[in-house]
Amino acid sequence: MAAAMEMSEADQIKTFKDFLVQYNKLSELCFNDCVHDFTSRTLRSTEEKCILNCMDKYLRTNQRVSQRFHEFQMIANENMMALAQKSGNPS
């Protein structure tokens, strides 16, 4: 029980770490792509809009890539299973 709790805590820390890495990456990407003008201290409304769109688009990109990635993985797994069955019992 204690081991399971500890495990989940380690998992939680890992998830949080992954989240922070993603968060930093997203900030860097959208900052680099959207903010070019340093004549004022505050974000312009166009920059703000760009950043929000950038974030949304990146998340949608990630979602779509993840869908396709899993489809390909499923197909690869099925092929492996078929191959294993074929070589397992030669008829």
């Binding site: 769109n53 949304d56 688009k57 990109t61 779509r64």
Partner: peptide, 10 residues
Amino acid sequence: IPIKYYEPEL
């Protein structure tokens, strides 16, 4: 994805 972020959708 072009770096002009005019819209949030793909």
